[in-house]
Simulated assay, not measured.
Amino acid sequence: MKDELYALTIDQEWAGKQIKEVLQKRLHMSRRVIRKLVAAQGVLVNGEPIWLSWRLAEGDHLRLILPAEESVDILPEPIPFQNVFEDEDVLVVEKRAGLIVHPTSGHWTGTLANGVVYDWQQRGIVARFRPVHRIDQWTSGLLVIAKNHHAHQLLSRQMMERTIDRAYTAIVNGVLERDEGLVVGPIGRNDDDFRVREVRADGQEASTEYRVTDRFAEGTQVDLKLHTGRTHQIRVHMKHLGHPLFGDAMYGTTDDQRWIERQALHAKLLGFVHPRSGEKMLFQSPLPEDMCRLVERLKGNSEERED
């Protein structure tokens, strides 16, 4: 099965240019994707395979075709997930708390990847599961998955250049005094437990912007924006401020099970430039029910104290 990346008619601007120039400068293709196209004889001009050095004429019809790829190492399973948006290049999903994004050692099944691959199989879609970013198992919210190599390459570049918009809502223990702030603190692994991260001088650069949206007697609701994408970044930085997330079993200092059964963190906003159309895409997700219940309980406790 073949996957058509692009089909376009050459206009006056690109007439006389080599195919390689069009691929690199107009379509922003990586060398790796170009090599795959050449190996698959997937560069066609007016229906015929052509060398990359071929100079195009106005009106030529250029098609770029790759063999479709599958995630053969991921077992298809009927794992439910919410499909927010999907086209030939990207899939945006809303991940529920508790669902791991991708199979890992000890978790080969029951992941979002297993569910997506199953769903694609049921609908006759041949694509490889390529998450552009990840969110923690016990964090809920929006996630974008690329459906082909070229889309993944362009979206990953946006991640590296920090032009993908990501915003979160969290509910933290205690009352933050400042209305907004920027937490700057390098993050590295804890010496005693490789799973745990902490702010430390020899860590990787990390910064998190926060803004208070509501205060309660025992907690604070905040919106957060990542300027970097370190593992557990929000959780580590809020603990560093002295206000760990409600329900955070790894970084919390209190038993919050009576409040919420997972860390109170939700990826509420996701924005990126579409890899094919160049259109700015923006998605938003409402606060999930368990975090809404936590807010209502905190509000109730605040009112009782005032009485």
Rank of each mutant, 00 (worst) to 15 (best):
K2L: 14
D3Y: 10
D3H: 09
Y6A: 12
A7Y: 12
L8R: 01
Q12R: 14
Q12I: 13
E13L: 00
W14S: 14
G16W: 13
E21M: 15
L23R: 00
K25R: 14
R31V: 04
R31D: 11
V33H: 03
R35T: 11
R35F: 08
A40W: 01
A40D: 11
L44E: 05
P49A: 06
S53I: 06
S53M: 14
W54M: 07
E58T: 09
G59L: 03
L62T: 02
R63S: 10
R63E: 12
L66W: 03
L66F: 07
L66N: 06
A68V: 05
E70F: 03
S71N: 04
I74H: 00
I79P: 01
Q82Y: 11
F85R: 07
E88Q: 11
D89P: 03
V92N: 02
V92A: 08
E94D: 12
E94G: 03
A97Y: 03
A97S: 15
H102K: 06
T104W: 08
T104K: 05
W108F: 11
T109M: 01
G110W: 05
Q122F: 06
F129P: 00
P131K: 12
I135A: 03
I135P: 00
Q137Y: 00
Q137E: 07
K147Y: 11
N148F: 02
H150C: 05
A151N: 14
H152I: 00
R157M: 09
R157L: 09
E161D: 15
T163Y: 02
A167L: 11
T169G: 03
A170G: 13
I171K: 02
V172W: 01
V172Y: 04
R178N: 15
R178P: 04
D179E: 15
G181N: 10
G181I: 15
G185D: 07
P186I: 08
D192Q: 14
D192G: 05
F194K: 04
R197D: 01
R197L: 01
E209D: 08
T213K: 12
D214S: 15
E218G: 03
Q221S: 11
K225I: 05
T228R: 08
G229F: 12
T231C: 11
H232S: 06
I234C: 13
V236G: 08
M238D: 02
M238H: 05
K239C: 01
H243M: 07
L245D: 00
D248V: 06
A249M: 12
Y251A: 02
Y251C: 14
Y251I: 14
G252H: 00
A264S: 08
L265G: 01
L270S: 09
F272Q: 02
K280P: 13
K280G: 02
D290Y: 01
M291V: 06
C292L: 15
V295P: 02
E296P: 10
L298T: 04
G300A: 15
N301R: 09
N301Q: 14
E306W: 12
D307N: 15
